[in-house]
Design a protein around this nucleic acid. Structure first.
Length: 294
DNA sequence: AAGAACTCCTGTTGGC
DNA sequence: TGCCAACAGGAGTTCT
């Protein structure tokens, strides 16, 4: 589900609830998500204060007062729901069954010192949580080899051209590869390629000259990646099926999609009379306009 | 090595 | 209405 704009929106929602607070009690309702949860997970968290909440790619990192870091990834359907002491709950009114549809997939509940709760729900359980010493984070299997942040200075046309030089994979696949740029997903890659006028099937290596220098398209792509992510951030992300903000609210960038989910509809490019097509690449849907994306 | 295919899991949707 | 295949904001693992 969540790509960088959604994860960052979740981070901004959780930060004021978590930072400066402590875990009073942690309920773990199953042994694993995508991977087994860490040994003695609840016990190791209990009593720990949260000093900061950061984001790296699509991971949330809660830094604790004992030097450990709680790593959290939302996978496809992961979601945090916050209930604050005086603020009521997001559970709709009336009585709640112990195992009703809403709570069935709530696998972890963090009870905080001030009475707030943060519930982690994840239907497909592709999410991840781990707890490691801060000093070992960079060598963690999930972080070692993770690419650069797309909104950082590191992503520029010269860097991207050098990385893409010689690549035979389609540009869509290259942009989804988290070892290169970390944080993009299916939606924002489709949208960025459309903004840049680049066909998703184009060989990635063609976005660099023979000597690995950027082309005009490389520059356009870098600008498009940054602009689509920033636009989505301003909209609180995109809500299609599962994604919600921590207050239960919806993101609304889905209303600004130019290609994603718009198969058969008119291209929204400037003065383009094309029709959005859907193809499958690497088993995943790609939406693009065959007229203005070359 | 790089790239493509397969895998995890549950729920929803669309076609027949 | 039922049944079944396809598909869903991800990404590690296993093949070729």
């Amino acid at each position: 589900m969540p790509e960088l704009p959604e994860v960052e929106t979740v981070r901004r929602g959780l930060e004021p609830v978590l930072v400066g607070n402590a875990f009073a009690r942690v309920e773990q309702r199953r042994p694993d998500l995508r991977f087994p949860l860490p040994a003695r997970f609840s016990e190791r968290l209990t009593g720990r204060a949260i000093e900061s909440l950061d984001r790296r790619a699509k991971y949330l990192l809660a830094r604790l007062d004992d030097g450990q870091v709680l790593i959290m990834h939302l996978g496809m359907t992961g979601r945090f729901i916050v209930d604050t002491p005086g603020g009521g709950t997001n559970t709709s009114g009336g009585f709640v069954h112990g195992q009703d549809a809403a709570s069935k997939h709530e696998h972890i509940v963090f009870h905080l010192g001030d009475g707030a709760t943060v519930r982690y729900s994840d239907v497909r359980r592709f999410g991840i949580m781990d707890l490691v010493p801060s000093a070992t984070l960079d060598s963690h299997a999930l972080f070692k080899g993770l690419g650069i942040e797309p909104l950082g200075e590191g992503l520029n046309a010269a860097w991207l051209a050098a990385k893409l030089k010689g690549k035979t994979a389609p540009i869509k696949a290259a942009l989804l590869d988290q070892r290169l740029i970390a944080g993009l997903g299916n939606i924002y890659v489709c949208e960025a390629l459309h903004r840049a006028g680049i066909a998703p099937l184009k060989r990635a290596g063609l976005l660099a000259t023979k000597t690995g220098r950027p082309t005009e398209k490389t520059t356009a792509l870098v600008q498009s990646i940054k602009s689509v992510l920033n636009d989505a951030l301003r909209s609180g992300g995109s809500s299609l099926r599962d994604y919600r903000r921590t207050d239960g609210g919806l993101g609304y960038f889905q209303h600004s999609f130019r290609t994603y989910g718009r198969e058969g509809e008119p291209c929204l490019g400037d003065a383009c009379d094309g029709t959005v097509r859907r193809i499958v690449q690497g088993g995943r849907s790609t939406f693009y306009c065959p007229i203005c994306q070359k």
